[in-house]
Design a protein around this nucleic acid. Structure first.
Length: 460
RNA sequence: GCCGGGGUGCCCGAGCGGUCCAAGGGGACGGGCUGGAGACCCGUUGCCCCGCAAGGGGCGCGCGGGUUCGAAUCCCGCCCCCGGCGCCA
């Protein structure tokens, strides 16, 4: 038995697998194609194996042949079989490649808890904090809270906060996306002084929290080979996000999730080692090819940022519970910062191929009048593990299977900075630094301590 | 980057064209023995396919090709590790 949940369902109940694919708003004929190729592959393999067996029997006899005549006769026979095999072997390889291509293009199953539908069907399940809502955004705010049956306490403000991009460029004058655009392209940025300290402090804050929860701190490779990265993510993500190094078989990671998942590539892990909880720190490089003109201003959606990432390898029976744990960690981190958020159970059509279930943590952005994604926590079950060939071994009975993998943002630097700039902004443009970050600023002589103040001039 | 040495199953390690459908040891797992543990004995311990099962078969010696009736063993390309030289934050 294959052991990969998707392949098992494909072989035993293809119609059920189609249901999962349909929920994702994908074309279920993909399942028919996979089914057909799998059957054809197995049939061909059986035929080829039989012929190979015949050939092996003859070959073994050649060594023991008594006379040179018998030998010559057997060699003739073996050659005849080889000729017969040649075409079949070629066909087998062809089908095998096709089967593999289609199998690897299948998305994961969909967890029964996931709301079915497209983007608009994603379901907020929890709210925290007391958002500041500009009076002009009151209706939009209700659309994002009360519509889902939640009564969220909020503070109405009469002045409209400046958007994070304006704060960056005009009020604090601590960012330059125009010059970065000229020398690197749009969606790049220069940050200066206090915002750089803030970036670093956010990372340290998340690292400190995660490691104190027992997660192992990891600084991973920032590039991976094609054969590895293509097995961590799906093809769409690859096309939309991944930068390639010219002339080399190397690809820049879009998140530490990629090298962390690859840490046990082609390995077996004994059950007593699981769960393995990791926290990676890395820059993230993203093409944002599918984003169009969305969030073009500022540093909300950029080609490069820093992120602290949670990653877990677990036994299958533990992954649901651990999924709650990692989103729980993210919630606690954002509560620590004092940023008002909601948690959204992402609808099936918007899941991404790897995940059976995904929670986003979205922070209220007072200038935009919207909750925006800061964290994404996915349970990938055995989808990545199958592709990366990472198995568990249950000591009792030495049973083997694919591990489950989970990942979640802890803190993504630039996005969280945008949330801080909008949420802790005073009417005069001063930004109050969350108390939780101060320990990570105190140790530096030049770092800001309590506030970041508006400036007349860019520092450089 | 150049020169030299090397990569064998979970680990160690033999093999260097057919006696290898990979020896031997260790570990792990299952069972026997035991009041219990240890020691000891037997079995299992890569992946895949067919089969309800018993069982049968194929592939596998870093990866990919090739030579041959037959490749861990020979040839070509690539990757990685160790040592030396060079370069370097």
């Amino acid at each position: 038995m294959p052991g990969w949940s998707v392949l098992e369902l494909l072989r035993n109940k293809p119609e059920e697998l189609k249901e999962h694919v349909r929920k994702r708003l994908m074309d279920p004929s993909l399942v028919d194609e996979a089914y057909r190729l799998d059957v054809e592959w197995r049939k061909l393999l059986t035929t080829v194996n039989e012929l190979r067996h015949k050939h092996n029997v003859i070959t073994r006899n050649i060594a023991k042949a008594a006379s040179s005549e018998e030998r010559a006769k057997l060699i003739r026979e073996a050659k005849r079989l080889l000729a017969e095999l040649e075409g079949l072997e070629r066909k087998l390889k062809e089908v095998e490649r096709e089967r593999e291509r289609v199998l690897l293009s299948l998305p994961n199953l969909v967890d029964p808890d996931v709301p079915v539908g497209g983007e608009d069907d994603s379901l907020p399940i929890e709210f925290w904090g007391r958002p500041r809502v500009w009076e002009g955004h009151l209706e939009a705010f209700r659309e994002q809270t009360e519509k889902y049956g939640f009564k969220v306490d909020y503070e109405v403000i009469g002045w409209r906060p400046r958007g994070h991009a304006d704060m960056l460029e005009e009020v604090l004058k601590l960012g330059d996306t125009l010059k970065a655009g000229e020398v690197a392209g749009s969606r790049f940025y220069y940050l200066f002084d206090d915002l750089v300290w803030l970036d670093l402090a956010l990372l340290l804050y998340a690292i400190d929290y995660m490691t104190s929860k027992g997660y192992t701190l990891v600084l991973p490779p920032y590039m991976l080979r094609y054969k590895v990265i293509s097995r961590v993510i799906d093809l769409d993500t690859f096309k939309d996000a991944i930068y390639e190094v010219a002339g080399e078989d190397l690809y820049l990671i879009a998140t530490a999730e990629h090298p962390l998942a690859a840490l046990y590539y082609n390995e077996e892990i004994y059950d007593e080692e699981l769960p393995i909880k990791l926290v990676g720190v890395s820059p993230c490089f993203r093409k944002e090819a599918g984003a169009g003109n969305r969030d073009l201003k500022g540093i909300f959606r950029v080609h490069q940022f820093h992120k602290v990432e949670q990653f877990i390898f677990s036994m299958p029976e533990d992954s649901r519970k651990l999924h709650e744990e990692i989103i729980g960690n993210a919630k606690e981190l954002f509560r620590g910062l004092g940023l008002p958020y909601r948690v959204v159970n992402i609808a099936s059509g918007d899941l991404g191929a790897c995940a059976v279930k995904k929670y986003d943590l979205e922070v209220w952005m007072p200038a935009q009048g919207k909750y925006r994604e800061m964290v994404s926590a996915s349970n990938c079950t055995d989808w990545q593990a199958y592709r990366l060939n990472i198995r568990y071994v249950r000591r009792k009975g030495m049973e083997k299977g694919y591990v489950h993998t989970l990942n979640s943002t802890a803190i993504a630097s630039t996005r969280t900075i945008t949330a801080i700039l909008e949420n802790f902004q005073e009417p005069d443009g001063t930004v109050i630094i969350p108390k939780a970050l101060r320990p990570y600023l105190e140790m530096f002589k030049k770092a800001p301590k309590e506030v970041i103040e508006p400036r007349q001039k860019r520092p450089a």
